[in-house]
Amino acid sequence: MSAAQQQATEGDDGYNFAYLDEQTKRMIRRCLLKAVAVPGYQVPFGGREMPLPYGWGTGGMQVTASIIGRDDTLKVIDQGADDTTNAVNIRRFFARVAEVPTTESTAEASIVQTRHRVPEDPMREDQIIVYQVPQPEPLRPLEPREIECRKMHAYKEYGLMQVSLYEDIARFGEIATSYSYPVMVGDRYLMSPTPIPKFDNPKMDDFPALQLFGAGREKRIYAIPPYTKVKSLDFDDHPFAVQQWEEDCALCGAEDTFLDEVILDDQGGKMYVCSDSHYCARRRAEGHEGKLSESAARAYAAAVGAAEEEEA
């Protein structure tokens, strides 16, 4: 054992700073550097058991734990929202084991850990976004075998994926993939953008912030350096297109964000609101209003006569 390994700063509960031991961090850090050097390639890493279950963000957490320091500010989102249970839980974990300040503001964060979304606010060069990855292998739905997938990546043999997308077009008239929509990184590696909606795919291209991806259960790390070409697969006669909504955000009126559908009653009533909760809140604070923003909502609620408790 070397001297560095013996010394460790103990934080909460006697665990090391940011939970992981220094040897594990070093191993993950080396993998992160490889991942940056080979954009889109899945680097195998000795993933550790985390105190949260596999599938709940352990890969993203290991990446975050390996990069985070005392002068970082962390934002954690799940489905674009800062207040979903899992996001709260992961933020709570790092506040506890790394004693870092946390924030809901994308602009204030130095590290954003995310599940299923890229924030609506632009990110900068001095920020890092860490994606939680349930299934890093974009070819897995077509080929369950790791050995086969690895060969396809090695020889850039992505015909299987092209054929599958083309079959969609033949059958449905469009590519029937709405999230986890595969991308080519730097014209070399086919990559799963994690289950973000394809709406977010274009944000990954030429993105100023470093994008890191951690898959804990599958034990893979990959990365997209800043200003790297990320192209969603498509065909000349069927170009890639993102989702669009006929409505705007009912709360902040945004016209260009990813919207969650919210069911209002059992009569088919619904509205759409920004999935990025912080972005939406900030816009409302700036005075933007949607048709169901607070004042509108009150009027609406009064009209349908079912608003007493919310009003209070």
Partner: peptide
């Protein structure tokens, strides 16, 4: 001597390396 504070110094240095390789 090695790093004065192995945990936090190496974290700082690594972030420098990550920035260097990403840019």
């Amino acid at each position: 001597p090695g790093l004065a504070d192995p945990v936090h110094d190496s974290q700082h240095i690594f972030r420098g390396l990550l920035t260097a390789l990403a840019h």
